[in-house]
């Protein structure tokens, strides 16, 4: 159970950089008066970031991922989240086996 000083420095630097990103947006937007276009932009942001996170996997990785994404969305329409997630994972495993 040893901690090397250089490793500690690296971990602390990574932690500082990460924490900065987590408070910077909050800090900045607190200081602006919200209204008009900015409110519209903020309202659209959560969905847009999530879409951006998954877009390459869903749209341009392969038929298994695209197919499993469609199955997940269809299941999420009526069924509990856990069922939709499990169904999506099961579909990706099955389709990857089929498509090689």
């Amino acid at each position: 159970m040893t901690i090397d000083p250089m490793v500690l420095a690296a971990i602390a630097a990574m932690a500082g950089a990460t924490y900065f990103t987590r408070i910077a947006g909050f800090w900045l937007v607190r200081r602006v008066r919200l209204g008009g276009p900015l409110s519209g932009a903020l309202a659209a942001m959560p969905g847009s970031i999530l879409v951006a996170l998954i877009a390459p996997t869903v749209l341009s990785t392969g038929p298994a991922e695209t197919g499993a994404a469609l199955v997940t969305i269809a299941l999420a329409w009526r069924l509990p989240p856990l069922v939709a997630i499990a169904g999506g994972v099961a579909t990706v495993v099955a389709l990857r086996a089929l498509t090689g």
Partner: peptide, 16 residues
């Protein structure tokens, strides 16, 4: 770490 986590700046703004 900063570059990979830069998306959190947007996330924090949206959460504000």
């Amino acid at each position: 770490a900063f570059i990979i986590n830069a998306r959190h700046i947007l996330m924090g703004a949206a959460l504000m």
